[in-house]
Design a protein around this nucleic acid. Sequence first.
RNA 1: UGGGCUAUCGCCAAGUGGUUAAGGCAUCGGACUUUGACUCCGACAUCGAAGGUUCGAAUCCUUCUAGCCCAGCCA
Length: 416
Amino acid sequence: NTRGDLKTPGVNSPYRERSIEENKALFEAMRAGEFKDGEKVLRAKIDMASPNMNLRDPVIYRIQRAHHFNTKDAWLIYPMYDFAHPMEDAFESITHSLCSLEFEDHRPLYDWFVEHTDVPDKPRQIEFGKLKIANEVIGKRYIKQLVDEGIVEGWDDPRLITLSGLRKRGIPPKAIHQFVHALGLPKSQGETELEMLYEAVRGVLGEEAPRVHAVLDPIKVTIENYPHDTEELKVPFHKDNETLGERVLPFGKTLYIEREDFIEEKPNKKWKRWALGIEVRLMHAYFVKAERVIKDDQGRITEIIATYDVKTKSGSDFNERKPNGTIHFVEASTAQPIEVRLYEPLLLPDQDKSVDFKDKLNPDSKTVVQGFIEPHLEALTTRSVQFTRLGYFHQDDEAAHVYHRIVPLKSSFKRK
RNA sequence: UGGGCUAUCGCCAAGUGGUUAAGGCAUCGGACUUUGACUCCGACAUCGAAGGUUCGAAUCCUUCUAGCCCAGCCA
């Protein structure tokens, strides 16, 4: 190697002082195919002693009998990136050519080419730091590993921060724009927390997403004093955005609620959900009181027997009592089964930067659960909805019964 | 350690001699609530370190420290 190393200068090529005419002739010959691949190169004559390696008479053209996807086999010689970059920018009248930080050392060379060639424009290269997100796999070669090894399901796996992955997950483009815009184009080299993207997503979807009832971990509720089988409630899709319209929400004698919304004994006054002997409001419906539970052999609750109070119907101005909280439900006979995929960061929080990313893969980055969703949603014009009290979810392109969790709702509820 | 670059709150990020050192995320209080959501109030830094210049410095100078990048006929 004649380029030297970081501390010692390179040595000049023996052909460095060859005449321009001679070089031009040789270059034509290169192009004409008179030499074998790798036999000759064209170099820029700059400074073999430069502390910047890029300036040590860099190669700018090499012979390569390669098939090009666009120009096919028309060319035998191809320029190096460092030469092609400023030339393309200049010919295309690029004013600001943005690239990442590792090209800072190449800028002097970029400028040298612009300066020493007869080009129509004087473009300028500006570098910025790449966007990294904590606990996510960003690099293409690493993502490729995950894909190749089947750790994720493809380049569009909703856990990946690829555009196709974000799309499949249902992250709104507007949220990506806001997120990126908030970060700016700095030269610092940190990692952004995913939560910042999530918050942009919630901001967008909070206004636009219809609210819908779904239960992901169902437990059965029977209202023993309910005199009918079912009834239909007219409820809005979004309390604060009436342009989203209304839907018909079935209510009935048999319902499903979220298992974690019920506990036999109210643990403390902070508990704003359901418990035996306590009344909660079923959102958009009635107050219900838990009377007793039925358990299986293992002592696991299989059913809650409750009573309801007609007077407390949503929309009546009943205010004689306050419920302990409001929970959501789905009517059992009309509910549609759904599969819900829950996503978490691909990597476990890392304390140690030196740990290989393969050693900190999060085993729970994806979990699949079976649940129920309220019926009659065919007319929805958007596939991104809020499952009330749970989060934002996106219906899969192909499988209508599959929902991807885009992002959970924030919660100030502290377990334990 | 030859050269280049970066260092401002837990995470992003404004700020380029005179500001109470923006803002967002997170966090912690509290109000409101038919989503423990949303919304609303409130709390939350002296600027990597040490010297120096100045009436006055995160902003200028000096020295240090830490991290990132560069020795492909890759991009």
